[in-house]
Nucleic acid binder design. Structure first.
Lengths: 199, 199
DNA sequence: CCATAATGTGAATTTAAATTCACATTACAT
DNA sequence: ATGTAATGTGAATTTAAATTCACATTATGG
């Protein structure tokens, strides 16, 4: 028997597999992100994954690129768009927080040993992307400082790292089950406090 | 053959095994923290681990307690000691940063799925401990605020979360290989900036 | 139409890690 | 002294996951 699934081009299958992997990541975390789980979520056989990807590393690589494009790209577009620096920073903050609220698997993957200790290329790609992200936020903060919206004395880079740390730490506490308050409420409080700190 | 290793009491062996596990964690991360690696580092057979622990979860549990006692306890003792709130916060910051610099495996373990998705008891224990940690730092910040050393308007809890996020994010970037600057220099810059923000 | 390359599958195979087992040694209580 | 419970080991066994394989189906260019 070899006929349960419609045949589709590898382009389409790759896309489906990545989306399925993304699903699994959200539901079962990095640890549950197995070939079998991805195949099940995509509604196909294990072996078929290997028709369209070289192996698990290859799937992981594509997943990471997908996340980087779909997600990290959003901050860049907000930063490049119109609005005051503080409005931009606020939008970046809440969109990132919302993302984490919906899919804590993303930061888990980004900061997992699966990535760092796995394929070097993937780790490097992510490190570079994260570097861009930090720079993007630094630039927004520097602009706010220059326009007098934020404190003149703050150093953009370190403030950006603090900003991202705040988001990251929330994500991690959330996954740990140690975040008692509502995720959204927590985000609002953190933002209000951060805004007070920087201006 | 059953005679390569001196016999010792289980109390001593448990201690040795935990220290060995701690070593492995530092060198190979959570992923490399296998029974075989621990046994090798402790200079004993795999099977002997099972003489002194119920299984890997049991080892992990003891390791987490060890870390919580040895490490997280330090912040508490600094907080409880003498000095101004800002001096205390500074000491906590740099001791935590130094710790991470020497053993990035610690935050890796604390925030790993190995812990969160493994034995529920371990995850809960850690969540509770982390909660205490947040409270300890909140209290120092609140004291600083009250004494006029820090801004009156900042909310202690959210500022504490931001403080810890800054540390955590540094640790994660470091493990990713994306932290370009020297670890110590980075810590000093972050601290200088944070201090500017809160007062 | 039809050859064939691409797509798809269930059933091995491989690999790595946790765990158990059967047996060897030794501390130590009596 | 001695027997027995605790400690120690190498060699299975188990388990779970990635990967490969032999064979089935089907789209498609000619």
């Amino acid at each position: 028997m070899g006929s349960c699934l419609e045949k589709k081009s590898t382009d389409i299958r790759r896309e489906e597999i990545i989306r399925a992997a993304f699903e699994v990541l959200g539901e079962k975390g990095v640890r549950g992100l197995t070939i079998a789980a991805i195949a099940e979520s995509a509604g196909m056989s294990n072996a078929n994954i290997y028709r369209h990807f070289g192996g698990k590393d290859d799937v992981l690589s594509a997943l990471v690129q997908f996340i980087a494009e779909e997600i990290m790209g959003k901050a860049s577009s907000i930063a490049a768009g119109s609005g005051t620096p503080s409005a931009k920073l606020e939008r970046i903050f809440f969109s990132h927080m919302a993302l984490i609220g919906e899919n804590p698997g993303i930061p888990r993957l980004v900061f997992s040993e699966e990535i760092h200790l796995g394929d070097r290329k993937i780790a490097d790609f992510l490190a570079v992307r994260l570097g861009y992200y930090v720079e993007t936020i630094s630039a927004v903060i520097a602009a706010g400082s220059a326009e007098g919206e934020f404190l003149k004395e703050l150093s953009p880079r370190e403030t950006a790292l603090t900003f991202l740390g705040m988001i990251q730490f929330t994500a991690l506490r959330r996954v740990m089950g140690g975040a008692s308050a509502e995720h959204v409420t927590e985000a609002e409080r953190l933002w209000a406090n951060f805004l007070r700190l920087i201006r």
